[in-house]
Simulated assay, not measured.
Amino acid sequence: MLDPAEPQLVVDSRTLHFSWLPADPDAVAALVPAGLRPRSDRQVFMNQYVVEDDAQTSGFGAYSLTYVGVTLSGADAPDGVTPGGWWTHYVTSSHRVRDYAVARGAPAVLGRTTIAIRGDSLVAETEADGVALIRARARVGHTGHAVRTGHNRYFTLRDGKLLSAVYPFVAEPVTPFEIESVEFLDPTHPIYALRPENPLLIGWGFYAPRTSFAYPGGLTPYPASTPAAPDGPGAHRVESTRPGAPESPRQRSATSAPARPDPARLDPARLDPVSPDPVSPDPASPDPVSPDPASPDPASPDPASPDPASPDPASPDPGLPGSGVPEPARPGRVPPPPVPGVGPENHQVPFRRARSGLPSGS
């Protein structure tokens, strides 16, 4: 078994990574443990990737992996903009990777992820225990001169303690890039709680045929903060619509007619990428500012100072890298005609054009 404290490097993985707003925000919020806070829009992220050859890793060997999780508020990556993420599901084809991830607190199980490309059509599928769970379809182009670099921050829970790690990455995204549909295939599986709403609203996304990243050595304990408090009604799926057209409310069945869009959800101060969390203060780090001898006992909290674990109500959620503020999700394009045999039991959401070129994950 690999030592979970040792770093691991992966190069040139094929990666499909994107985020969406969920059909059931309450169910998503319920998956976040006490000490972490989901974003107000309950944004969900997913990374499906494949490592073809043993020579592409420092110790994992060839493998495939899908992780899905909830975007967090108040726990950004080192850039202070890219939000952190809580892994809710983690499916890998490798026993070695599973054992390594479990030892680091990830909810890892065995399964398989495939990414097939024919012409400009990409299909990524994830299964666990022989049961198909998720299928994503996208239109993809070719890589150019663009290279995306940065860090993602992800959280896990081990022995009842929250842990955080920062994962550096380098990705070569393709252009153009467009998600066509996302299907959650098994309504009986717990992962179904993360299915996207209708119409599908995307935060960001990209496909990169070459993405390199590292699992850092060791993990950092994370101080507990306010427990996640679910808010917002649940919802289900429908077909996407053109920008400006009516969208379905969060509380409706799959057969309900769409309603007018929620202006609050489409506000530019809403949506942003789903990379790991903002960095919270490390309790082990000394205060860089020495206390004034004339001031009260430094061990006593200053009632005028905000709680560092609590978000500033006047501050918007972190936005897309470089923007400083979140970007709104927008309704998608008009979907193709319904596919015969696809019903509420197969949660399928035809999609809008996604933002491309945002960070990849580990």
Rank of each mutant, 00 (worst) to 15 (best):
P276R: 13
R250M: 10
D272T: 15
P306Y: 03
S305F: 09
A259R: 11
D317K: 07
D292V: 05
G244M: 00
A284H: 13
P298G: 04
Y207G: 02
T188K: 11
S290T: 12
G232N: 04
R252D: 10
H236C: 09
P246D: 12
P283R: 13
F184R: 02
A309R: 13
P227E: 06
G205F: 04
P283K: 10
P303C: 01
G234R: 11
P316M: 03
V274W: 14
P301R: 14
A264I: 07
A257N: 06
A259Q: 10
T188I: 06
A259T: 11
S256W: 07
A193D: 12
T255D: 14
P291N: 04
P286F: 05
P316I: 01
A284K: 13
D302G: 02
P258I: 00
R265C: 00
L194W: 01
P243I: 06
P301I: 10
S290L: 14
P276V: 10
P298W: 05
S225D: 14
P296I: 03
A264N: 07
P261Y: 09
S323A: 12
I202E: 06
G203H: 04
S256L: 03
H236T: 15
G217D: 05
N198R: 15
D302K: 08
D297S: 09
A304S: 10
S285W: 15
E239W: 15
P293K: 04
P291G: 04
R242W: 13
R265N: 00
P308N: 05
A254P: 13
A245K: 05
R242T: 12
T211W: 06
A254R: 09
G232C: 01
D302C: 04
S305Q: 10
D312V: 03
D287P: 11
A269R: 14
R265T: 05
A245C: 07
L201G: 08
A193H: 08
T226K: 11
S300M: 14
T220P: 02
P281I: 12
P281K: 13
P233D: 13
S212P: 00
T255R: 11
H236D: 15
P221C: 02
T241C: 09
L200R: 06
P288I: 02
P293R: 08
L201T: 02
S300A: 14
T241P: 04
A229S: 14
R195L: 00
P268T: 00
T226C: 08
P230Y: 06
A228M: 13
D317H: 11
P286G: 01
D302E: 06
A229H: 13
S275C: 14
D307Q: 05
A245T: 03
D292F: 08
D262P: 01
P246G: 05
R237E: 07
P286C: 02
P227N: 01
P301M: 09
P243T: 02
H236Q: 12
G244Q: 01
P273W: 12
G319M: 03
Y222D: 11
S285C: 12
A214L: 11
A259W: 07
A314I: 08
P291M: 02
P321G: 03
P318E: 01
P311H: 10
P318Q: 03
P216E: 03
